[in-house]
Amino acid sequence: MQLQSVEARYGPVKALHGISLDVAAGELVAVLGANGAGKTTTLRAVSGTVRRTGDVVFDGRKLPRRPDAAARAGIAHVPEGRGTFSELSVWENLRLGAYTRRGSIKDDAQRVFKYFPRLDERKGQQAGTLSGGEQQMLALGRAMMARPKLVLLDEPSLGLAPMLVKEIFERLERMRADEGVAVLVVEQNANLALAHAARAYVLEVGNVVVSGASEELRANESVRRSYLGY
């Protein structure tokens, strides 16, 4: 997947000033940056939930700017706040994950339950009654139901205890390795993101300022001072 000098705006306010980035198949890439740097907007530009100019090329084809088109092309976006349907049951949320697909979803559900056995136990429960960690699992599980080629993940650590965050990232890593999905993750916690991602982009006020392999970024003086805090 490639972004080619993508700009995005909310009404009169420009949030991205021409961003180019790419994610290879099966790769975990992180987007880092301060609040308001345009991290979330980058994900929204990919899934088409924000007004954008510039091309998003996915699988060699240009994506039309419609959220359902992105979903159909194989991009699963787990937004900030997880985007689960709190009034629907866990099982119904998973069914919605596979909304764009035809055919049986039993196998996919089994695979999701393998990673997140907790969801199997809570199948009939209303999603709103799950704990924060369980909801994040549900969001990931729902994304997996679509058999995506790319998962867009927005702040998976938000509001979760450090232990849980670690667990979530480990499962994410495992899922990526097993299923060969590419992941583009936005994360405030740069240490954590760089520990898991192969590469990362650092955004500042709507521009990419630094990018490269996680190792390189970790060694980069200014990145370390601004984002890693040591």
């Binding site: 899934s47 939930t49 959220p67 359902d68 979903a71 159909r72 699963a76 976006h77 937004p79 985007g83 689960t84 349907f85 009034e87 629907l88 119904e92 919605l96 994950g97 909304y99 764009t100 729902r142 679509a146």
Partner: peptide, 16 residues
């Protein structure tokens, strides 16, 4: 039902 409950999330899973 999903579209009635939450438009944004529904769009993300591909509901028109």
């Amino acid at each position: 039902r999903a579209a009635a409950l939450n438009r944004d999330s529904s769009e993300l899973v591909g509901v028109r």
